[in-house]
Design a protein around this nucleic acid. Structure first.
Lengths: 191, 191
DNA sequence: GACTTCAACTTGACAGTGTCAAGCTACAAG
DNA sequence: CTTGTAGCTTGACACTGTCAAGTTGAAGTC
């Protein structure tokens, strides 16, 4: 019953996420998606603007999980500046590893997306997690630059990790390595 | 005359680069490549292991340009620690903007490449530019961490720039913004 | 010189892809 | 009852990467 109540649109997004996360970007296909959802190959066209539209909708979902993951880490961490910055970064890195292919899809030039206010909102919401943190801990004229700095650092590290250019032994070792880097940079200026 | 002397292999790589840089990843097609090079659609198969192989060869070329671009910036900059670090980063960012799509192709999980020692060497050579710099200016046990830190920071910034998540007005403004970030982080620890 | 070998390339085919156009069907509105 | 229409199907199209077989031409061998 419940199964028949979830819309085909949601079902296609779920199926798309499954295909992407398990098989990588090449496995994500409109036709496979439709087949797994039990509809004809042209059915998705009535819910999304082509493959691009489906990807866009999936990315919206991704940003929700992403923001939640960062918030969870922050909630579980010490509430001081150092603790919170490290926590948000660990959430960031954790998501990038756990949802590898989705993470990749999320950070792609806007031209590759279909126009979608829902995606824009979700992307903004996930960025706001960092913005709010910086507002609190880096007041003053340099707030924006600290935000870009933290974002660049953690995004770059996540990317290099993903493509195997940095190779700590495990997830926990990655956390340790990144924490060491934050410390080296004297990032929060308190330490 | 000279034109007939360059091998089809090189011609295909050149054509592939042109297609990629001008039209993005979707425009890079084995068949279009072959057509532009004036050969049949199956000819490339005799020089590369499929599309993957062509991409791999193109990436090798990319790393050569990349390394040269960083070295050029370093040569033209003050030879002190601050100047050299800023310079290598500016070369990095400049390449990522100027060769957008190629840059993207270069930093991709190794599984998406065909095995190719030439590419591995070229990738290593471009990384060595940074490694050598860190060896010189960050001797001691933390050298590796400084290297990862700089790499993450500049790679992340380049990516965010590319996908429009940070939007300085121009190339020169990006340079200024990144320089400011480096300064804020007190990166080289001398300043 | 005749024969063999072989690498480079062509031709033709195949399954898979995204996308479009036309038709069907069930359900809501008038 | 009629009309519309949203959701879906069917069928087609051009395009993709890849494979198999055939062609060609030049180099080497007897």
């Amino acid at each position: 019953m419940q199964e028949s109540e979830i819309s085909l649109r949601d079902k296609l997004i779920d199926t798309g996420l499954k295909l992407l996360l398990e098989g990588g970007p090449e496995a994500l296909t409109l036709r496979k998606c439709a087949q797994l959802a039990g509809v004809s190959h042209a059915a998705p066209a009535h819910h999304f603007a082509g493959l691009r539209g489906l990807k866009t909708a999936m990315v919206g979902r991704g940003h929700e999980i992403f923001a939640q993951m960062m918030r969870d880490e922050m909630d579980a961490a010490p509430k001081d500046k150092n603790g919170q910055i490290l926590a948000i970064c660990q959430g960031y890195i954790q998501f990038s590893q756990q949802y590898r292919h989705l993470f990749n899809l999320m950070f792609v030039p806007p031209a590759e997306f279909a126009p979608d206010p829902a995606r824009d909102d979700a992307a903004k919401a996930s960025r706001d997690v960092l913005t709010a943190l910086c507002k609190q801990h880096f007041p003053g004229p340099n707030q924006h630059f600290y935000e870009i700095a933290i974002w660049s650092l953690v995004h770059g590290y996540s990317k290099l990790l993903e493509i195997g250019r940095v190779q700590p032994g495990s997830q926990s070792q990655a956390d340790i390595e990144f924490a060491k880097i934050l410390k080296l940079l004297d990032f929060p200026g308190t330490q």
